[in-house]
Design a protein around this nucleic acid. Structure first.
Lengths: 206, 206
DNA sequence: ATCATTTTTAAACAACCGTTTAAATTCTTT
DNA sequence: AAAGAATTTAAACGGTTGTTTAAAAATGAT
């Protein structure tokens, strides 16, 4: 157990936890301070304001969210393998951070609070060479010629939504936590099969 | 122009708009009253409390969200046609109410505020005969034998998420409103093709 | 040990929250 | 027109919000 966290780090960790669970509007500075075991004033002493602390948490969450899994595309594997591993890792990441998609999309839709730097993120994704590889595969007729924005949206839909819809699914279908987790594991297999099956054009031996 | 809305209805309409846009925690009673052109006290005069008004809005939004499109399954069409029409209608509904999925999932994940009656909703869905029809089609080998919970999740993922991710997509890909709407139209076609293609087992003429 | 600096605390600040009250206004019924 | 009920209003309520302040405690340097 490494408990040697500085006060600043303790507050940041508590803020991450509370903000992601309840959102900017859904929590108070005092709640964050209490979660960190600190006095309220320390939050502003280290981070100036609730809004600024939120901005910090949001931006790091955003980076984790977008960059945690694209590294696969640097590897020397077939495109299909990379896609499969990518989805696998995406589900792994989301299993550990199931609340991040809802957090990001909710806070982003509320606007104003976070005019974050998206250019850097997109650049980092691009630096893995995913986009070139996909475009090249489209030219070669290996995968469907779909706009990459739409392709990205398809993958994200099938990976993020199952985690975002947890309370809805558990409620509507009266699932226990275990049952929900079972469906999640199945869902990973289904969406992988579906996405790969749709994206990759079957080889015709004409 | 039918402007003859009662005070109660004006408040309900304003509350629907404000709650869905900003969430329970993101708005105030005074904001709702102002949006309705009313005094704050009237909100509680007609709806007792902010929480109770929210409950009302949430439950009706939930019903619209879940029940607006399942009626197709009462019609006398092939299962594939029904599925295609269902997805089409789902996108239609979401085009008119693009904020509802995020609203529902966000508020539902915050818990406590809304212990709504899900039994009624599921019953109404079941009354269309979707579930029997799908199970029957699975027995006949027309569609894949996937748990219906997972099937539901797949469809919802691909319909809801593209609307929820609007700010993310516009931001990451620097899309104008028109460009985003274009992608959305394309997305509808892609996901329809993908879902139908995955779900329905091709007929083998053995 | 003394002093200056940094860190932490309790208390206070004005502003705003959801809600209530009691008076003013409008509408309905006679 | 008068009386009673329903609607609307402004003002106030206790409590909480984010933030600031000024004093206390802890730390480091000499």
């Amino acid at each position: 157990m490494s408990k040697e966290l500085s006060t600043e780090e303790k507050i940041r960790e508590a803020a991450k936890h509370v903000f992601i669970a309840k959102g900017f509007d859904g929590c108070t500075s005092r709640e964050i301070a209490k979660a960190a075991g600190m006095n309220v004033a320390l939050v502003n002493y280290y981070f100036c304001s609730k809004k600024q602390l939120f901005k910090l948490i949001f931006e790091t969450a955003m980076e984790d969210f977008m960059l945690s899994t694209v590294e696969v595309f640097r590897k020397d594997l077939s495109l299909e393998s990379k896609m499969r591993i990518f989805i696998e890792r995406e589900f792994e990441f989301l299993t550990m951070h199931p609340d991040i998609p809802r957090f990001i999309l909710s806070e982003l839709s509320r606007g104003d609070k976070c005019e974050f730097d998206h250019a850097g993120i997109l650049d980092k994704i691009a630096s893995t060479g995913v986009f070139e590889e996909l475009l090249e595969a489209q030219e070669k007729g290996i995968i469907r010629k779909i706009d990459l924005t739409n392709l990205m949206l398809m993958i994200m839909s099938n990976c993020h939504y199952p985690f975002m819809a947890k309370p809805l699914m558990k409620y509507l279908n009266s699932l226990s936590e275990e049952e929900y987790q079972e469906r999640l594991t199945l869902q990973k297999q289904y969406v992988t099969e579906m996405l790969i099956g749709y994206l990759f054009i079957p080889k015709t031996n004409s």
